[in-house]
Amino acid sequence: MRKTVQHLKVIANLRLNDDHHILVLQSADKLEQIHPGQFANLLVENSSTVFLRRPFSIYSVDYAQNTISIYIKIIGEGTRALSKAVVGSEIDTMFPLGNKFTLPTEKEKVLLVGGGSGVASLKSLAQSLHEKSNEVAILIGARSSKDLVELDEFSKYGTVYTTTEDGTQGVKGYVTNHPVLELELSTFQRVYSCGPEPMMKAVAKKAKEKSIFCELSLENTMACGFGVCLCCITTTIDGHKCVCTEGPVFNINILKWEI
């Protein structure tokens, strides 16, 4: 679907816990194909401090209802204001933006590794992979058990593993301490990851060592979201690339990351 700016109607605001919300936003128009990995850029109205739009992955799409949902982890003023969106109000939304994850052409065993708000970009990917009969494992890392939300949703599409830094759920430590990454990685043909940069770097390093296909979805700060300000760049073997238009999804072989 081509990029648009629309006033989407808030038809649900699901509070998962203190810090996590899901907004369901409805378009008056028929939605066309939106790909896993693509994102939306939301205008934050009614805030005296937030100036720029805020980018969020498109968490899921319902083509029958013409809705997209947005998973919000509250970290500052913009996410807080959006988490208070009232059902029936409208949010000025620019979407769909960015490229997409590359899906395997034949059935594969794939691992998705998410942390923080990064898990948001992995749900529609897990769904697509599952629908195409791939064998999907999803590893989610969080600080504590209260940060692990929506696990039931993910378990519809594959086996879910978790780690928490404080050991309140799953394996204690970081995602890289989990056996599925530490011991079983070579049984996978593909790895996808989105989350804090140190986490993605660790995942990329392991995938690179074992020469496994690996794509990351970056969350660089953005001013425009559609390729005109050149503020969101990442360094690649082909020079600076825009995360908002040439990403957010990049293969680790392209990124010039010190890993």
């Binding site: 401090t49 937030v50 100036f51 720029l52 660089n220 700060t221 953005m222 001013a223 300000c229 050149l230 503020c231 969101c232 760049i233 990442t234 360094t235 020079g239 600076h240």
Partner: peptide, 23 residues
């Protein structure tokens, strides 16, 4: 020109800073 390194943008009160550097 490659322009400057990331981060090149900071949101500020009613505005933003950029240091794209003519990429």
């Amino acid at each position: 020109r490659q322009g400057n390194d990331y981060p090149r943008m900071a949101e500020t009160a009613s505005g933003m800073l950029n240091s794209v550097g003519l990429q």
